[in-house]
Nucleic acid binder design. Structure first.
Length: 592
RNA sequence: CGGGACGUGGCGCAGCCUGGUAGCGCACCUGCUUUGGGAGCAGGGGGUCCCCGGUUCGAAUCCGGGCGUCCCGACCA
């Protein structure tokens, strides 16, 4: 924190511009020991956030400026598509959540009030907004509506991690659309999709829109907005030409067939002593893993399931869950009981009547494969789906990098990403149980068709750090930087430079920029430069006696660290022009 | 929920193995010097060594239990 001898908050004629002296800005010299992700380390070091407990963070005044700018962009773009801001409570009666069957979810914080009434803390607000819609929207004339809020969400995450990226309490922009029918939902969905594209572009992110699983929200279709980052927890599959992009949870691919030998008339047993893994089997047989079939045993609510994929693939738990529902891995003793063999020699042949459900990946539809014979140390070659065993066929494999994208978009690459937003077609999943209905023009009662749409402003900010930094600090996109210009004053408060810096600060502010003036007394120039690099505002201006009173001021672009000099005469205009150039010519600026 | 690591002034760490009156760097306070890329000298303040229990003449150190935080996996806007 800076040393300001006199506690003198500056007169602040410019709401968006700050003088630093006396402000609370707790920067840190060393990386925090428990921070791994880049955004976690830099957001702590740059004095933007402080941790309270696992997954609980306080945002500092400087950090709040970034969040406010992200939220400002979101508000502008939501308002632009006609969405209306409102605000709902974060504490709700449990009964409403019981009506949709979402009371008791593991991530839900539950509590009781003093009279014993059961309450929940908001994980999200579908139930609540639908409860209101059910009471207020009655006629087709009331539709469509889009309502949104910036509100706290609380989730008892099993594993908070990576600083602000996965937390237990966070602010979400959540919006909800109410339409008369599916066509209306299509329009609301498209409007949100357009707004989201503008929001993430203006926030300066590299982002992808991908098909996604509907997860706990339920509904009939969804997209996620993903910012590529090594700190990401999700993985997407993306075609080389960008025409295909999907969360790996549902990504499909075309996996080339291996070269198959001639098919034998029937499966042939052969001894495979000591062979237990696909790698060993491939080495032993001299066949490619793609010509081998892997068997994974899980236990669903309905009993044992044998999941078959080709040797080079893995079973994807979520995809399998779409077919068989919730399941767990089988224990070794269970497997021995059902198959009479240990993992390593399991296969689908001869399971008829055993009660084991067999699910085969789509790749197994063609060709013939080596599988376990359900006897230890014995395998079968030439096993053909449909001839030698029966199975449900479904896409249950993980996509591999390099496989062909559906639609011919070229080879797939796998990219780790941070989920920064999502949009869901909810349909009537909430409106139906909560009784949100209206009368159409024929006097027919119909169920309102809903969509829900979320963005995490803090995640947007952290993704920007992940995507914009170097070894000395953050490099903010112009749209969400805490300030547009950071003036470093070198010299005490009574120096001529101080007067000039204050004048430049005022002039730049008059030109519509938001300017930080580092007028903290007693700091060495090096300290101010290092902290300016850490904070990462797009343009830095140095005002010191090396060049003043007569000479130029030094201007430096944070992203490139390119320095230039501008003459005193017209300096503010020149700096503003430089900033506008960095802001991609738009000069557009969210209100703070 | 499975696996691993860590917990010692505000921050980063050493000390623990082999028990004996708690240390280093940074930060902070005072003074002098210094002032364009995290200054120098001198002096100074600040620690229930995460908590509870046990062993011991004596525990930061050994033992048991608990709590907290981070990382990997599972899970998940």
């Amino acid at each position: 924190m800076s040393d300001s001898g006199s506690w003198r908050l500056p007169a602040a004629p410019y709401r968006g511009s700050w003088r630093l002296a006396g402000r609370f800005w707790p920067t840190v010299r060393d990386d925090p020991a428990d921070a791994e992700a880049v955004s976690h380390r830099l957001s702590v070091r740059a004095g933007l956030v402080r941790q309270l407990a696992a997954g609980l963070y306080t945002v500092t005044p400087l950090g709040l400026r970034v969040i406010a700018r992200v939220e400002g962009i979101i508000r502008e773009e939501m308002d632009r598509i006609g969405a209306q801001e409102l605000l709902m409570p974060i504490m709700h009666p449990a009964e409403i959540w019981e009506e949709t069957g979402r009371y008791g979810l593991a991530e839900q914080f539950r509590l009781e009030d003093r009279s014993g009434r059961r309450m929940v803390l908001a994980m999200t607000h579908e139930e609540i907004i639908t409860w209101h819609a059910a009471r207020e929207l009655r006629s087709y004339r009331d539709l469509p509506q889009s309502w949104y809020q910036m509100q706290t969400k609380l989730r008892d995450e099993p594993r908070p991690k990576s600083g602000m990226l996965r937390v237990r309490e966070f602010t979400m922009k959540d919006s909800y659309s109410f339409d008369a029918d599916d066509a209306g939902l299509d329009r609301s969905y498209a409007a949100h999709s357009d707004a989201y594209a503008r929001i993430f572009d203006r926030a300066g992110l590299t982002w992808y829109r991908v098909e996604s699983d509907v997860g706990m929200m339920g509904g009939s279709g969804a997209h996620e907005y993903m910012a590529p980052s090594d700190a990401g927890e999700d993985m997407i599959a993306r075609s080389a030409d960008g025409t295909y992009a999907a969360n790996v949870e549902l990504a499909a691919s075309v996996a080339a067939d291996p070269a198959f030998a001639d098919v034998p008339d029937a499966p042939e047993e052969f001894a495979t002593p000591g062979i237990g893994t696909i790698g060993e089997l491939a080495g032993f047989t001299g066949l490619a893993p793609a010509a081998l079939a892997k068997a994974v045993v899980v236990v669903s609510d309905a009993g044992p399931v044998l999941a078959m994929v080709r040797g080079e693939h893995q079973v994807h738990e979520k995809k399998l869950a779409h077919v068989i529902g919730p399941h767990r891995a089988a224990h070794p003793e269970e497997i021995r009981g059902w198959f009479g063999a240990d993992p390593g020699s399991l296969g689908p042949v001869g399971l008829d009547g055993s009660g084991v459900r067999v699910v085969a990946d789509t790749t197994l539809r063609t060709g013939h494969y080596v599988t376990g014979a359900n006897r230890d140390g014995v395998h079968l070659r030439g096993v053909v789906l449909g001839r030698d065993f029966q199975a449900e066929v479904a896409d249950i494999r993980t996509v591999l990098a390099g496989e062909e994208a559906p639609g011919g978009g070229g080879p797939i690459e796998l990219v780790p990403v941070i989920e920064i937003g999502n949009i869901f077609r909810l349909g009537t999943k909430y409106s139906d149980p909560l009784g949100a209905r209206y009368l159409d023009e024929h006097g027919q009662e119909r169920v309102i068709v809903m969509g829900s749409y979320g963005i995490g402003p803090a995640r947007v900010a952290m993704a920007a750090i992940e995507q914009g930094h170097d070894d000395v600090g953050i490099i903010w996109p112009t749209g969400i930087a805490p300030f547009d210009v950071h003036i470093v004053l070198i010299g005490d408060e009574y120096s001529p430079q101080a007067d000039y810096a204050a004048a430049l600060w005022a002039e730049l502010s008059d030109l519509g920029l938001e300017v930080l003036l580092d007028d903290r007394p007693g700091l060495r120039p090096g300290e101010k430069f290092v902290e300016a690099d850490l904070l990462g505002c797009p343009v830095r201006v140095t005002v010191g006696k090396r060049t003043l009173p007569d000479g130029p001021v030094e201007v430096r672009v944070r992203r490139t660290q390119e320095a230039s000099e501008v003459p005193l005469e017209g300096a503010a205009q020149a700096i503003a022009a430089l900033w506008r150039g960095l802001a991609d010519g738009s000069g557009e600026h969210p209100p703070c």
